[in-house]
Amino acid sequence: MADRKEFVIKDIDVAASMRNQKTANIIRLTVIYIFLTLMAVMMIFPFYWMIISSLKTMEEYRLNVPTLWPKKIVFENFVMAFEKAKLLDLFLHTLYVGAVSTVLSLVVTVLSAFAFARLNFKGKGIVFGALMATMMVPGELYTITNYLTVSGRLPFLEESISWLDITNTFAVLIVPMLVSVYYIYLLRQTFMQIPNELYLAAKVDGTSDFKYLWKVMLPLSVSTIITITILKMMGSWNAYIWPRLVANDDAHKLITNGLRGASFVTEAGDTNFPAQMAAVFIVSIPLFLVFVFLRKYIMRGVSRSGIKG
């Protein structure tokens, strides 16, 4: 006992500590808020500019010193946007392609994620590894080969095969995009977190694999399924390069492509930017709403991609 060091309890100046704490806090918060505000302004300004431009008249838009708020608010640009860009058609096409490809893509994703997470088959590791490897290749690289395939121009044949040519159909917008390795990976990770015992318990109770998938795994993975649905829908909505390349006719045009191609030239020969801004604004609304209401799931999908190797 004697050789034990004596424990000295120092007196603390509580008031001084509190003052220091407070100052440090204020400085920290000030810096953070200034930074965040600057970044927020940078992000929001283009959208703000889009919205006010869509509400201006052509004359006001052309002023040498741009106004930060329209002197006279007009809505005729929106009417023009619908007429000139045939927005309604574009909306319907995109909705159709988006809905069909999301549903089909979910079926493919769920079944393959189940196989990779739950079943044991020869070459599983190799197949999954190969799929993962394709994630390293930028999507633009496939575009050319995919285009050759869907237009019937197979590389080892001299002549193109006409019945393979499915350009300018809805199928060409849907089928090549059905399999997403990233979604399979995302869902497989979720499936693998479900304890093995649940599967064994279900086996003892005589549950088939499919029933187990349907009644246990899917309900437990609802949030990932929702994330995938949203990401897929957003992907369909935002797709540009592929639709522009393979389905550029009026009957199948999608929204981004349609916007790009629409002519907003006035009789005087100038581009009617306010009308164009109005069209862009309308097109952005659905995505904006999706983000506001389903932010939680989108963030999950984005942040999940960063972790787990």
Binding site: P195, E197, L200, A201, V216, L220
Partner: peptide, 12 residues
């Protein structure tokens, strides 16, 4: 009938 260490109840 089988009972597991971690119960293996269906959480949903």
């Amino acid at each position: 009938g089988l009972v597991f260490q971690n119960y293996a109840l269906y959480p949903h």
